[in-house]
Computed example of a mutant assay.
Amino acid sequence: MYQFSYSEIRQESGADSRERERQALDRAIELMERAETAGAHSSETVEAIYATRTLWSILVEDLANPDNSLSEELRASLISIGLWVMREADAIRLGKAKSFRGIIDVTAMIREGLE
Score class of each variant (00 low, 15 high):
residue 78 L to E: 03
residue 35 A to T: 08
residue 36 E to T: 09
residue 83 L to Y: 13
residue 90 D to H: 08
residue 91 A to I: 01
residue 74 L to S: 06
residue 55 L to D: 00
residue 34 R to D: 15
residue 61 E to A: 11
residue 62 D to Q: 11
residue 53 R to N: 09
residue 74 L to K: 06
residue 29 I to M: 07
residue 10 R to L: 13
residue 17 S to P: 05
residue 31 L to F: 13
residue 114 L to P: 06
residue 23 Q to C: 08
residue 62 D to R: 07
residue 50 Y to T: 11
residue 14 G to Y: 07
residue 31 L to Y: 08
residue 108 A to M: 08
residue 55 L to W: 03
residue 110 I to C: 06
residue 70 L to P: 00
residue 18 R to Y: 04
residue 69 S to L: 12
residue 10 R to K: 15
residue 89 A to G: 02
residue 113 G to K: 05
residue 25 L to K: 05
residue 77 S to L: 06
residue 113 G to F: 03
residue 89 A to I: 03
residue 52 T to Q: 01
residue 71 S to A: 04
residue 70 L to A: 07
residue 42 S to A: 13
residue 16 D to G: 10
residue 20 R to Y: 11
residue 112 E to R: 15
residue 47 E to G: 11
residue 55 L to T: 01
residue 10 R to A: 11
residue 65 N to T: 06
residue 115 E to F: 12
residue 89 A to F: 01
residue 96 K to H: 12
residue 96 K to P: 02
residue 40 A to N: 11
residue 71 S to N: 05
residue 43 S to C: 08
residue 21 E to L: 14
residue 61 E to T: 15
residue 66 P to H: 06
residue 3 Q to S: 12
residue 40 A to H: 13
residue 87 R to V: 09
residue 102 G to C: 02
residue 15 A to H: 08
residue 110 I to M: 09
residue 72 E to K: 05
residue 83 L to K: 12
residue 80 S to T: 14
